Simulated assay, not measured.
Amino acid sequence: MPQPPQSSRKPASRWRASAYKVFYALPKVVRRRLVRIVAPTYTVGAVMMVYSPDRSQILLLRQPPGFGWGLPAGLLDRGERPEQAAIRELREETGIDLGLEAISPAAPSAVIHTRGRWVDTVFVTEVEPDSVELVIDGAEVWEAKWWPVTAMPPITVAASRLLAHYGLGPYADYPEAARVD
């Protein structure tokens, strides 16, 4: 009977073997801290793409510093799930209050920005524009407005790159612009 192939093992250098021995001898809390210092960390946010039911309009926000329009979005709180953060941010920024059943993950459901070191988890929903009153606070959000997907206002660079992944916005026809570096 033939023997299954054996995995080959490359001998570790003495330095590397010693470093691992020392590392694993450290208390777990110290090891975790060292990994967080050495390894790249990412901030995680949740983004909501809110369309009209016929997908002809999208909800955009103008926020400080006001150099363009963007999507309802924000950072996850500690222990918060991305879909909960997306719903919370939409409610805080626009007054639209949805349940989990009303949203779904976009495709792709996450966009990784390696140069900025953040991850956007992206969700979509449909809301009839005439059925909701947009409520903004005037501080975090200056304006909220429904725009035709074919005639959007000036969009922030970050939102433009994100929207390009979904074939929307000013970079939709430039796949290299959607690159998330």
Rank of each mutant, 00 (worst) to 15 (best):
R161Q: 08
E143R: 05
P4I: 06
R115H: 15
A158R: 08
A25Q: 11
M1E: 14
A86D: 02
P53K: 01
I96H: 08
P153K: 01
G169S: 08
R31N: 04
A139C: 11
I136R: 00
Y166N: 00
E143C: 07
A106V: 05
K21G: 15
T150M: 10
P129M: 09
G116K: 01
E80S: 01
P53F: 06
G138T: 01
E128G: 05
R117P: 12
K10M: 12
Q63Y: 12
R9I: 15
L163Q: 05
G138E: 09
S13V: 07
L134V: 13
E93M: 09
S109I: 04
V180T: 15
T125S: 12
R179F: 14
E101P: 02
I136Q: 05
E133D: 08
V35C: 13
A12H: 11
H113V: 13
Y42D: 05
A139N: 13
R32W: 13
V149I: 15
P129F: 04
E143A: 07
V135I: 15
P2C: 10
L163I: 04
G66P: 05
Y20H: 14
A110S: 15
R14W: 09
G116A: 01
V29H: 15
G167F: 09
A25F: 06
G68L: 00
P5F: 06
V119P: 02
E93G: 05
D137C: 01
Q84D: 13
G74N: 00
E133P: 00
K28Q: 12
V22K: 02
I103L: 03
F67C: 09
S8C: 10
I87H: 00
A144I: 13
P2I: 10
S7P: 15
P148A: 09
F67S: 13
V132Y: 07
P153D: 11
L163T: 01
S56Y: 09
S109M: 06
A73F: 13
A19D: 03
Y42T: 07
T43L: 04
G169H: 01
P5D: 05
I136E: 01
P11M: 00
Q6R: 13
I58S: 00
E176N: 12
Q63R: 14
E128M: 08
E140G: 11
F123R: 04
M1P: 14
Y24T: 13
E128N: 02
E93S: 00
Q84T: 11
K21I: 11
P11T: 07
A158I: 07
F23C: 11
A107G: 07
S18P: 08
G66V: 10
L26H: 00
L168Y: 10
G68D: 02
D77A: 14
A177R: 13
A159Y: 00
Q6P: 06
A12T: 13
V132D: 01
A144K: 10
I37S: 11
A85N: 06
